[in-house]
C-alpha cells in the first residue's frame, strides 16, 4: 500500500486540558497500529502541522477527525468549521467536545467574572494596570489579533454537525481502541459504521451497574465532601453520604472511580433518553434523603430536609460537572437572580 492510500487521521484540541491527547497514547503499543493504518494529517499535540496546511486540503480529505475540547472562543469555533469541512467523519472526542465538561462550568457565571478572576483578582496576580486581553491590539509592527472569548461555552455539536460521540474525561483506552477498530474495519474492509449521531465506546446502563461496591437501601441524613470522611471500603459511596453521580451516568469506564474510593463525577454523561444529566442526578440524590415523614408539621418537614440539602454546597456544579453545555438550560440567567453560580 502506498503512503498516500492510507486513510487520513486528524486530532485537534479546542478548549481542552490536553488529557484527551494523552488518552490516545494510553492505548500503549496499539498506537503503532494506528500509525501503521493511518496517515496523520493534522495533530498539533504531536506533529508539526499548521492551520494553513489544513486549509490547503481538499474538502473531505481527512477520513477521521477526533475533535476534543469545548468551543470557548472564536478560534475554537473557526477550527470546528474548518475541520468539519475537511473531514469525512467528525468525532466529538471526550466530554469537553461532547457536552462542555469543565470549561462549560463557566456558563454558571459571566465572561467578565472569569476574566476578572484570571487577570485581576486571584491573589497571585500582579497586574497593576488591569490589562485584559484584547481581540485587536495596535503595535508599531501592525495589528495583532486574539480570538474572542465567548460568554457561553458550547459543545462541538452546538456549532457544527457531529457524526459520533466518544464520551469520557478522557475516554478510556479500551473504548478508544474499540472505536478505532470499527473505523479501521469500515475504512479497510467496508464494514458498516454505526448510525450517525451514535454515542460510541460506552454502554446504555448506569455506572452503578458496573460498580462492584455492595449496595443496600440508602437513607442519608447528611452528605459529605470527599475530604470530610474516609469511606468504608467495599460499600457503595452514595450510601455513605458521598455524592456519587454513578446512578445518572452512562457506563463504559468500568466504574473506575468508585472502585478506588472516589465517587463517580459523571464524566461519561447521561444515559440514552435522558435530556438533562443534572436533573436526573438531582432526583437520585433527593430520593436518598432519609429525613422527613408524613406525620411532621409542614415547617418542621421543610427545615429538616433543608438541613440535609444544605450539606451539598454546589448542586449545579456537582450535578452538571460535565454536561452544562448540553443541559436543558445551558447556562445561568444573568438578567435575573444572582447569575453567579453561587448557591444561596
Amino acid at each position: 500500500m502506498t503512503e498516500n492510500a492510507k486513510p487520513k487521521l486528524a486530532m485537534y484540541w479546542a478548549s481542552s486540558c490536553g488529557g484527551c491527547e494523552i488518552s490516545i497514547l494510553n492505548i500503549h503499543e496499539k498506537i503503532l497500529i494506528v500509525d501503521e493504518v493511518f496517515d496523520i494529517a493534522f495533530f498539533p499535540c504531536i506533529a508539526d502541522f499548521k492551520t494553513k496546511d489544513v486549509k490547503g486540503y481538499p474538502d473531505g480529505y481527512i477520513d477521521v477527525c477526533l475533535f476534543n475540547g469545548a468551543i470557548r472562543n472564536s478560534e475554537n469555533e473557526e477550527m470546528a468549521h474548518l475541520l468539519r469541512q475537511k473531514s469525512k467523519v467528525l468525532v466529538a472526542y471526550g466530554s469537553c467536545s461532547y457536552e462542555g465538561c469543565i470549561p462549560a462550568l463557566s456558563n454558571l457565571t459571566t465572561k467578565q467574572a472569569t476574566l476578572d478572576t484570571v487577570f485581576l483578582d486571584n491573589p497571585t496576580i500582579d497586574n497593576p494596570e488591569g490589562i485584559l486581553p484584547q481581540p485587536r491590539y495596535e503595535v508599531p509592527e501592525g495589528e495583532l489579533e486574539l480570538p474572542v472569548f465567548y460568554n457561553t461555552v458550547k459543545s462541538l455539536d452546538q456549532v457544527v454537525d457531529v457524526d459520533y460521540y466518544l464520551p469520557g474525561c478522557p475516554p478510556e483506552p479500551p473504548q478508544i481502541w474499540a472505536v478505532l477498530e470499527i473505523v479501521v474495519a469500515a475504512l479497510l474492509e467496508g464494514a458498516p459504521l454505526p448510525p450517525k449521531g451514535a454515542i460510541v465506546g460506552a454502554r446504555d446502563v448506569a455506572v452503578c451497574e458496573e460498580c462492584p461496591l455492595e449496595k443496600h437501601e440508602k437513607t442519608i441524613n447528611r452528605f459529605y465532601r470527599p475530604y470530610e470522611i474516609i469511606p468504608e471500603p467495599g460499600l457503595c459511596l452514595l450510601e455513605q453520604g458521598l455524592v456519587c453521580v454513578g446512578p445518572a451516568t452512562r457506563a463504559g469506564c468500568g466504574a473506575l472511580c468508585p472502585q478506588v474510593g472516589m465517587s463517580c463525577r459523571g464524566c461519561y454523561g447521561p444515559l440514552d433518553d435522558v435530556e438533562d444529566q443534572g436533573a436526573k442526578m438531582l432526583s437520585a440524590i433527593a430520593s436518598v434523603i432519609g429525613v422527613g415523614d408524613p406525620s411532621m408539621e409542614e415547617d418542621e418537614l421543610e427545615r429538616e430536609i433543608q438541613a440535609v440539602v444544605d450539606t451539598i454546597p454546589d448542586p449545579a456544579g456537582t450535578f452538571y460537572r460535565f454536561s452544562m453545555a448540553h443541559s436543558l438550560l445551558r447556562r445561568a440567567n444573568l438578567n435575573g437572580g444572582n447569575g453567579k453560580g453561587e448557591a444561596k
Binding site: A286, L301, V309, D314, G336
Partner: peptide, 20 residues
C-alpha cells in the same frame, strides 16, 4: 414528601442558574 425533598434541592440549584 419525595416531591418536597426534590423541590428543596431543585430550588437551591435554580438559584445558581439565576432563576428567581
Amino acid at each position: 414528601i419525595k416531591t418536597l425533598r426534590r423541590f428543596i434541592l431543585l430550588k437551591k440549584m435554580l438559584a445558581q442558574l439565576g432563576i428567581e
